[in-house]
Design a protein around this nucleic acid. Structure first.
Length: 484
RNA sequence: CGGGACGUGGCGCAGCCUGGUAGCGCACAUGCUUGGGGUGCAUGGGGUCGUCGGUUCAAAUCCGACCGUCCCGACCA
């Protein structure tokens, strides 16, 4: 077997079978593993370290916008879930129930939270009395259970981790502003930290959250041409405050129901990182969320333990002091070539090779994971060079993904064009839409595509043409795609 | 829940058609060797063949039921 064949054998090429490629990366990069329960995965230390970085960076944004963290119960009494009619109808098909406590049958069964609006609504009704109590800006980091029929690691699992914000406001305008503010930092987060460009917009009524007045979302394009929802922000209006009796005395001494929002992002973002940036050698992690930003691989030759290793340790120490998440791979049981492949699979953004020849020349070989390009750099300049290179990799990944999104977003004026793009080119299709659910359904049935978002910034194009489906006067421009 | 495929050491598979008590590659362990793109050699450990039942002197192999997984559809962050 040639070396090339051996390399290829390691992973199914993305173009050959995208979902197999995806699952193989998840397992070979040790992000997650399957467990004995269908749809339940274990997030392994390396995958969890990515999540911790995401959490930290997202939490900063949540707090910077005035929110505080709290923790609410895992269980929700059935009667609570039932208070908001649309909410219970939307979530009942996927709720897991607790009916026994030890040997005792419970008087009222408890839902394992599929989302926490109901339990939090109850508590807000206890806590909020006056306009002086508003706004309430609370977030929680928690696990959620939804009994999904089809599951895939990170993208859709029975249990998953997320953050869910739940806020209460005095006025409808304030709630709407909050909803959009969160959508804004979600977008900024994805683009800055994950290097994934997203479309921000509102969902159609058909696609909105069960119980919301209006749902907004950010949508990204995966490299197989399918869209993935990366986060949602809901304006709940007074739906839940009326159901849970969350009232306050306003500035005019009259009783009012609060205006609420809720919003969330999940471990699904790890799946997005894989599908947006990965290649046939494995993951390509953006430096800002990579658990290991740079790995030092000493080239083990001759008396390398005496000649190379001490120098490599010194480089490691200096980079650590410079704030780089660096790791020295001094394992003796693997050859350098083996380590190169492994760290590529795990998506480590930068590899630093130091061998006898480099020591002699006072340099190191730097290899970028994103482009696999090599360059040499003086050893004593690494504390400046490495952080700069990491920044460059971060922005280069973002530019690459941005170009991909632009190249794969196409306008369709006729339904024939529309179907042709979805069938043969994939990606997003922008078209005018009349606003009717019948066209939305027809398109979904015939092309498997749904309206991912109605863009906020392009709404002024409304009404300037005919609906791509029925030909009637259009109401708005919409982004369509097949989605995960 | 409908259509299809598949369950054999940790992983990927062969063996099944034509029953005779399990094999290969990778991984793992030990030793030597090698080391700038998955080094090579030797030795070794590990499987009641998804479960239950039936046929048979004898079942991984034939028959039945059940369970589970994966892919394709409807539901979903």
């Amino acid at each position: 077997m040639s070396k090339d064949e051996r390399q290829v054998k390691k992973i199914t090429p993305k173009t050959e079978d995208f979902s197999r490629w995806y699952v193989e990366i998840v397992q070979k990069a040790e992000l997650a593993d399957y467990t004995p329960m269908k749809g339940m995965m274990v997030i392994r230390p390396y995958g969890y370290a990515i999540w911790e970085n995401i959490q930290r960076l997202m939490d900063q944004r949540i707090k910077a916008t005035g929110h505080v963290n709290a923790y609410f119960p895992l269980f929700i009494p059935e009667s609570f879930l039932k208070k908001e009619a649309e909410h219970v109808a939307g979530f009942t098909p996927e709720v897991a129930w607790v009916t026994m406590g030890g040997k005792e049958e419970l008087e009222e069964r408890l839902a394992v939270r599929p989302t926490s609006e109901a339990i939090i609504g109850y508590l807000y009704s206890k806590w909020i009395k006056s306009w002086r109590d508003l706004p309430v800006l609370i977030n929680q980091w928690a696990n959620i259970v939804r009994w999904e029929k089809v599951t895939r690691p990170f993208l859709r699992t029975t249990e998953f981790l997320w953050q869910e914000g739940h806020t209460c406001h005095e006025t409808a305008e304030e709630a709407e502003a909050e909803t959009l503010k969160v959508l804004g930092f979600y977008k900024e987060f994805c683009e800055t930290e994950l290097a994934i460009p997203v479309l921000a917009g509102r969902k159609t009524l058909r696609e909105k959250f069960a119980g919301a007045q209006m749902t907004y979302a950010i949508e990204a394009l995966m490299s197989d041409g399918k869209a993935l929802q990366m986060g949602t922000s809901h304006n709940l209006g007074q739906h839940f405050s009326k159901a849970f009796d969350i009232k306050f005395e306003d500035r005019n001494q009259t009783l009012q129901y609060v205006w609420q929002t809720s919003w969330g992002t999940t471990t699904r973002m790890i799946g997005a990182l894989i599908m947006a940036h990965g290649d046939d050698s494995g993951l390509r992690l953006p430096p800002r969320v990579a658990p290991i930003q740079a790995v030092i691989v000493p080239i083990s030759m001759g008396n390398w333990k005496e000649s190379v290793l001490p120098k490599a340790r010194a480089v490691e120490d200096n980079l650590k002091k410079a704030g780089v998440r660096v790791s020295l791979d001094a394992r003796e049981e693997f050859t350098p070539g083996w380590k190169f492949s492994e760290h590529e699979m795990r998506g480590v953004p930068l590899r630093i090779e130091i061998g006898p020849r480099d020591i002699a020349a006072g340099q190191a070989v730097l290899v970028r994971r994103d482009r696999k390009t090599k360059e040499t750099a003086p050893l004593d300049g690494l504390t400046v060079k490495v952080p700069a290179l990491l920044d460059e990799i971060q922005s280069s990944l973002f530019q690459e993904a941005t170009k991909f999104l632009a190249d794969n977003t196409r306008a369709a004026g006729t339904y024939e064009e529309f179907k042709d793009i979805l069938e043969n080119k994939k990606g997003f299709v922008t078209s005018l839409w009349c606003g009717s659910e019948s066209c939305e359904d027809k398109i979904k049935n015939e092309t498997m595509a749904t309206i991912r978002v109605i863009p906020l910034e392009n709404e002024e194009r409304s009404g300037r043409g005919a609906c791509v489906c029925c030909g009637r006067e259009a109401e708005t421009l919409a982004y369509f795609a097949r989605a995960y």
